[in-house]
Design a protein around this nucleic acid. Structure first.
Lengths: 155, 155
DNA sequence: TCGATTGGGCACCAATCTGGTGCTAATTGA
DNA sequence: TCAATTAGCACCAGATTGGTGCCCAATCGA
């Protein structure tokens, strides 16, 4: 259905919540109560983000999570990749790299290269260009990229 | 998993196959054999496309399907909407329209408007700007939209 | 007229994904 | 020690997805 999962949604909400609060650790409970998100599931998500080195985690009474890098350096693409795995651009692209030039017999519609593949690539590129910062302050995204037609920005 | 369905993939493949062949009807069998796609499923997809007036269908021995409009006028967004339903931009957006101005209590993270919503909107806009033609000849898309940074085109 | 070929409708299925929960252990500050 | 927190693992019900079976309806050519 072309949709990101709830996991990703919760992850992004949590990350946005932590923007510009580096240093102090925010607990999963605080986030879950603030945005009415299932705590256990959110914890699962944050754990994954920690595994992928997008957040630091600390146990104990005053523990919690905080961003590892500034919001300008974290892309939506990274978050999605961490929480649902990088979109498999299977077929041609991957084969291209591995066997350099041979015909592709795995992807049946290869000669044309499946339209869906191309669309997925496009979406993927967009997400890799969209930072956490631009989610917090959309204006940032547009004003800092004047040469890009605002109409065509992801957000 | 942020992915379009196989149905959509098959639909796009079929539509691309029919580009610039208005007039003669292409059978589901021909397409399925050309691209090694399950015939019955493809038929189901084409039926939906016909229902949404994206293709004409004709029964009988020499029947099949053909595009209703030229490839420049059919957008990927339309195809996706036909085959998997328009992405529900639930919550704020829809409520905004219906009750004009009240607080949104359905979408918990509403005050911030869920980051995921925004991303979804961006993707959706992109798909609505991407035509079938640009899937056939990517060059078309870029050269005809010179004011858009090529980096930011969907395809 | 008859048969072959095509799309249309409906039901159905197995596998997978998704959202979510329970429980217990380990860590840490007060 | 106690309370709060993250970590790990298993588990579950429901929805979605990809795909198939079967028969009917239309249409064309012989």
């Amino acid at each position: 259905m072309l949709q990101l999962t709830k996991r990703t949604e919760y992850g992004l909400i949590a990350l946005v919540h932590m923007v510009d609060r580096r240093g102090d650790f925010v607990s999963a409970r605080e986030i879950s109560e603030t945005y009415q998100v299932p705590r256990r599931l959110l914890a699962e998500v944050l754990k994954d983000l920690a595994k992928h080195a997008l957040v630091d985690s600390q146990r104990g009474a005053t523990g919690g999570y905080c961003l590892v890098r500034p919001a300008e350096e974290i892309t939506v693409g990274e978050v999605v990749a961490a929480l649902e795995g990088a979109p498999k651009l299977a077929g041609c692209e991957t084969l291209e790299a591995s066997r350099a030039g041979g015909e592709c017999d795995l992807e049946p519609s290869c000669p044309i290269r499946s339209p869906l593949q191309r669309i997925r690539e496009g979406i993927w590129r967009q997400m890799q260009r969209t930072t956490l910062r631009s989610l917090v302050e959309p204006v940032f995204h547009i004003t800092n990229l004047k040469h890009v037609d605002p109409e065509s920005t992801l957000i």
